[in-house]
Structure formats: C-alpha cells, structure tokens
Design a protein around this nucleic acid. Structure first.
Lengths: 352, 352
DNA sequence: CTGTTAGCGCTTTCAG
DNA sequence: CTGAAAGCGCTAACAG
C-alpha cells in the first residue's frame, strides 16, 4: 500500500508541537528552545520523516534544486569520452557529492543548438523547476540572453571560472591564461621552438588559448609562433598532417603544445614514425587530461583546467547563497590549472 | 523584478475559461472541445506559460521526475573515464535526451557504500523527490532492499537489462551471455586457445562473464579455459604479468578476451614487446568500449554492453508507464551487445 | 520562543 | 464537455 505519506503534521503531533515548529527545526532556524528541538528531532528520527521537496518549494521557499546547463556537443558522445569536451562524468559526480551533502539535488539540461529554441528551452526548465541556482557551463556563459533570463527571475548564477577581458572580469574559464601557462612552462625548460596544435571542438576557446601562446612567445622573443601554429580548427587527420610537416624538416619545434588528448596522441605517433625521441628530442604537453595519456609511451604530461573542481565550487557557492550562509572559503579554490608531469617533458636539446 | 509567476490562472483568464480546462489542455486530456483547446493553446503560447513541476506534483499528480541511482565507484573518477565502469556521461546525455523530449527531468543520486546508510539515503531521495520512476544501475539491481522500497511506494522501477538465473528472469545485464558471445565469436574464427583476462571493478560481474566463457569453451571441447584464465580481480600490473606468462611460452593462446579497455591495451603492449603480431598471431577482443581502443595500433575490436541504449530504454519505459501510454516498441531494443570490429581480430593461425 | 493564518500552483474529486 | 470546490505538504507572515 502507499503509505499516506508521512507529513510534517505527523511529526508535529508526535512531538506535541505545531507544524511550524517542526518546520523551524528541519530548516535549522535558531529560534527554537533546545528541549523542544530535541523532542522534534527525536520524533523525526523515529518516524523517519523526510520533508517533501515539492511541498517545500510550494511553501514559497527554496526548491533545493540546482540546474546545470550544458550545450550540445558537451560531454561525451558514443563510447568513451570524446576529446576536447567537458568531462561530464566527473562533473556530475562532483555535483552529486556537494549537493547531497547539503540536501540539495542537481539536474542537468542539455540545450539545443538553435539560439532561440535553446533560450525557450532554458526558460522552460527555469520556470518548471524553479531551481535555487543555475550553472552555465562553457561555452554557455557567453550567452547573454540566458544570463538575462536567470537574472530576471532572481536566481543565483555561477559559471565555471572567470577571466579578465578588456579590463573587466567576465565569467568563463581563462583559456588565454592556459595557453600562456603552458608556453611558459616549456620556455622555462629552455625550449624556444614551441609549436601549438589546436583540436578543440570549440574554435573560440582554441583562439583564446592560441592568443595566450602567441603573446608569451612574442614576449620571449621567439618567432616560432609564426611558423608552428595552426589557425583553424583541426581534425585528427589534419593534426597528423600538420605535425608531420613540422617534424620532418631539420628546423622543427623542440616542444609542442597539443590542445587535446587526441592531438597529443597523434603527435606521439608521428614522432615515433619519424624516429624523433620523446621527450629527448621533442617535448609534448597536452592541454587536456585523459586516462589514455598516462598509458601512452611515453606517458604524456598535461596542463589542464580543473573542470571538476570548478564545478564543485559552483555548486557550493550556489548552495551557500541559497542557505544565506557564508560563501565557502575562496582560499581552497586551488590553482587555476593542474599540471600532471609524466614522461613527455624534458629540457630543450642543445642543438636544434 | 520577480515576475509574480505566470500561473494557470493567468492563462485561464486570458482564454476565458476555468483553470481546470487549462489543466486539461496541458495534460492532453481528450475531453475538451476543439475550439476551446485551440483558444487555450493560443493563450499558453502567447503568454509563454509553463506549468510549475512542484505545483503539479503537489496537486497529487506526477512529479515529472526520474531518479537514476548509481553506486559508489560507478562512472569516472578523476580525469577521463576509468576503466571497467559505467559510461556515465553517455548515460546522462541519453537520459536527458529521452526525458526532455517528454517534458520530464532526470536526477542522479550516488549511494554511499554502507548498505544500511545507502538504503536510508535512497529512501530519503525517494520521499524528498517522489519521482515517477527509478532506474537502478549495476550492480544496484541486486539490492533487494532498494527494490522493496521502490515497490512499497508504488513507484515504477527499471534496471539495465535482464538475464535468466536459475530459470527465472532477473534484472541486470547479462554478463554471462557477454562472456559466451565473445568466446563464440573467437571460436568461429577458428581459435581454440582462447584466454580470458578479468579487470572489471566489479568481481561479481567478472565472475559471470568468466562463467559464460568457460561454459562455451567446455562445450567446444577446448581445454584452454583451464590454463588461460585469471580468477581474481586483476589490477593493471597483474594483468600485464599474467599476459606475459601466457604469451612467452610456445604454447600460448591465439586469442584473448580482455574484460576492460585497460587490460586490452596492456596485452597489446605485452604482445608488441614479445614481438607477437596482432592480429596475425594473436587476436584481441575487449569487453569494454573506449575511444582509446580505436586509436591503438592495431585498433582493438570490442564487444560490449550497450549501456547508453539500455539506459535510454529505461527512461522511455518509465515515462511511458507514467503517461500510461503504450510502452515503446520492444522491437527497437536492438541487439543484446554491440560489436565494433576493428583491426585486432583475425582467423586463428594454422599452427599454434 | 511558539502557534495561527494564509496561501504557493496545480490537480483531483465532484457537480453541472 | 466544463466549472467549482477542496486540498496536496510546506513555509512565509503575522500574532501572541
């Protein structure tokens, strides 16, 4: 049988108080006498009462729901994680963890491609669910219309990361800094001829990374970025061809930054074929982290954006705001990027 | 400003009907005159009205929510998909797709390890969310206590796949059949000396697959399964050692079934080291599909369970039940397993 | 500190 | 076929 649903009323009766008092207890209000609170808590435990989320929402309070929005082409497709995309599985798990700890729940919504249609879809989700917070994942943070919708409904919003553009802080992961950071790392190892191979599924992000790379290269006085750079979005085959055209001549890069795992692995293959020893003759750095990099020979180092951590942090901030509690310690934000040093990085060879 | 929330009442006024009629229209009841229905629909469109899910639930109707439950250790951890686990990202995307098409939403919940605690957590989620349907993912379908909870609340339940055990159909993916199927495939290619290397994170599933393998091997009259089988759960290092001990001697398997992508890649490495040509001298079949298999040399074939499709099918069934509409065509269930033939399979060599 | 009174937005009755 | 009434379980806003 369906048990007629255990309600706040049942608990109130059992504890001999009004349901409002029970409500105060479950919402951790501080205006309840300790002895009463204990009595109520005991009743809750004994009956196994759990407040109903929908009813709470109806009461005019929070919905205890967070909404994470992803674009088409985010995450994996088919079998295994595709390259150049969001690590959805890790993000989901991170979200579940931070939410369940606080009694929240997280929902995902994947937006259609069409701009207008996706906006409508977004609005629909917003009003149907009335979440307490929304997370816009890359590259959706650029969608001003979506941000406006959230704002208009007075819902808390978070995006993954933040960067400075034209002197202003804008939401979104700092791809430029990633490009810079990777380039600097290689420069520090003595490399001057550093190449950059794109491959991400999002050309705008590729461009920003490329800009960061070029900036640092120019500053360093190297001109390699004029030769060893691919401008457009590259498929796997083009990446291979490009790598070959770079690595076959005598004057070639001593280090390459690969935007994706796939491209990194492709370059590794090309190097092996051309009998260029990695890392002795060629250093390789991937801007995307995947398990397969650690199993390659040699294992490929990666400098990457901590999506999982960023996502978790978004959830926590949103929950904190909803609970009106202090925001989680910003100190634990950690580094902007994570570096996993494996076997593909070495000092630049003496002779180029 | 918060727009005072567009309600069913507003639509009713705009269309000049009672809110009950509007309710009937949005719930696709058939007892509404066509002209009235059109008027209401026009009003809905014009105002951009979207029914609030929480309120609908409160009205005593469906919640339009599906709950997918996963165990600890499911899905990926850290960067990139771990091996021997659920392709969570693909499942999430599949779920989002089938749900959003029907106006539903799907939530995930990851259960703690402890049995009792996880049961409590499950119950909490169930009563807090009151979902219209629940999906138990492997290996949770074995948890009788969870199934009972769902049943008790009269909530629809689906699990990934179904198999026969002791003559009865039980929920859960048919791992035994996967083992059998893989073995048969290799047998058909003329192989007799077929090895099986485990590596899954779930020993119970490994065992079932192993049993299937052994059954078919025994039927075929081969005794290879007595020699080329690993019984326990293998880590990567052990898998490598095992593969070496098999492949070094003159009498060795001509084909190996690898339970995970990781193990498959390990065997590939060992074979290369030992100068055993794949697939000429050794065929390799992975029971797990990952993108990296396609990029290995040679690319590794895989016979695997269609988690994504199964998950989607669960969502669809649940929604159909909630809508009391006919269940989706069972014909489109597709094959039990999917085979991706790549370059690692060949006929058995003449001489062993 | 505690209880009372109103709803939240929708759907189930049940009458017309 | 349509409308009116009642209430889902909870929480704001007010009284005490």
């Amino acid at each position: 049988m369906i048990k007629g649903s255990l309600t706040i009323e049942d608990v109130a009766k059992a504890a001999g108080v009004s349901r409002q008092t029970v409500s105060r207890v479950i919402n951790r209000r501080n205006n309840v006498k300790d002895s009463v609170r204990k009595r109520v808590e005991a009743a809750i435990d004994e009956l196994g009462y759990v407040p109903n989320a929908a009813a709470r929402r109806m009461g005019g309070a929070r919905s205890y729901l967070l909404l994470a929005v992803i674009g088409r082409g985010a995450g994996a497709a088919g079998a295994g994680a595709r390259t150049g995309r969001l690590p959805l599985d890790a993000m989901l798990l991170a979200g579940l963890e931070s939410c369940s700890a606080a009694g929240y729940h997280i929902l995902f919504e994947q937006l259609e491609t069409d701009r207008e249609a996706s906006h409508a879809q977004f609005n629909r989700a917003l009003t149907a669910l009335s979440p307490d917070g929304v997370i816009l994942t890359p590259p959706l943070e650029e969608r001003v219309d979506l941000r406006a919708s959230v704002d208009h409904r007075n819902i808390a919003l978070e995006c993954l990361g933040e960067r400075v553009e034209f002197g202003r802080a804008v939401p979104g992961i700092d791809d430029g800094a990633l490009g810079e950071s990777a380039t600097r790392h290689l420069l520090k190892l003595g490399h001057r001829q550093i190449g950059f191979v794109t491959g991400s599924s999002d050309p705008r992000r590729s461009d920003r990374r490329l800009v960061g790379y070029r900036r640092v290269m120019a500053q360093s006085g190297s001109r390699a970025h004029r030769h060893f750079t691919a401008d457009g979005r590259l498929g796997f085959a083009e990446a291979v061809a490009l790598a070959k055209s770079w690595l076959a001549p005598t004057i070639r890069p001593t280090a390459i930054i690969a935007e994706t795992e796939e491209v990194a692995l492709a370059i590794l293959d090309v190097a092996r074929e051309l009998k260029i020893a990695v890392p002795r003759d060629l250093s390789l750095l991937s801007l995307e982290e995947r398990a397969s990099l650690s199993r390659a020979t040699p294992a490929v180092s990666a400098l990457f954006q901590p999506y999982e951590r960023l996502f978790r942090s978004c959830c926590e901030k949103l929950i904190a705001r909803a609970e009106k509690s202090a925001a989680p310690d910003p100190d634990d934000a950690g580094d902007a990027f994570e570096l996993i040093e494996r076997k593909s990085l070495a000092k630049a060879p003496r002779v180029v």
